[in-house]
Amino acid sequence: MATLDDKGRAVREALHAGLEHILDAAQAHSALVLWDREYAATRPNALIEYVNDVAAALALPTRQRHEVRMALYRALLARGIDPTQSRSGAPTPPAPRAPVEGTAAFRIFRSVALGVFDGVRRPGASASGAFIAALTRRTPGGGLTDTAQRALETWALQHDDDGYFRRLSPAEYAPLTHLIYVAACEALGPVGADRLFAQAITQAEALPEAAEFPPRRLL
C-alpha cells in the first residue's frame, strides 16, 4: 500500500516530468526547487497557485503558463494521481459555488458539463486521465475551434475555470457538449457515458433556466 511519502515522491516525479516537457532544464530545476521549498510539505494541492508562482518567477507568457499547467495535470493523471484530490486520497470538498452569472444557455451547459466532469472523476484517476486525453486527442469538428477545445480541457481539469464559455452563443454549446460526450464514452464506455449524461440532463432540467433553454438542445 502506498504511503503518503510514496505519494509525495510520485507527485514530485510527475511534476518533474511535466515541467521538463515544457521548460528547459534550468527552468524546470528552479521550478522544482520552488515546489520543494514552498509547496511539497504544506500545500501539495495548491497546483494552480504553484503554477502561477512558477510563471511569475520565470516570467512566462500567459500561453506558456497554460501549457505548464496542462502538462502538470497530464503528468499527474498519467501516474494515476488525481490532481483534484488531497494527499490523503479523499476528494477535495467542493468550494461553495457563487451564484453563476451568464446566459441561461451557459448556466445549463455549465450544469451538464460539471455533472459529467464530476461523474468521470468518480471511478478514479485512470478514467479522468482517459477523459482528458480524449478531449485533447479528438479533432475538433462541427464548428468547434482549437481554442474552445483547449479551454474545455482546462475547465475539465479545474472546474472553476469556465470564463471562456460565458461569452459563447447558445448554438456553440452543442458541439462542446458532444465533445464531452465523446470523451466520456472513451473514459467510461458508452453505457456509462449515456447514464452519466442522462443524470446530468435530468439535473439541469430541474434548474429554472431550463424553461428558457431546455437542456436537450445540447444533445
Partner: peptide, 13 residues
C-alpha cells in the same frame, strides 16, 4: 465509440 478502453479492455454494450 468507447467499445474498447485505452488499455484494450473490451466494454460490454
Amino acid at each position: 465509440l468507447g467499445r474498447f478502453g485505452a488499455d484494450g479492455s473490451a466494454r460490454a454494450i
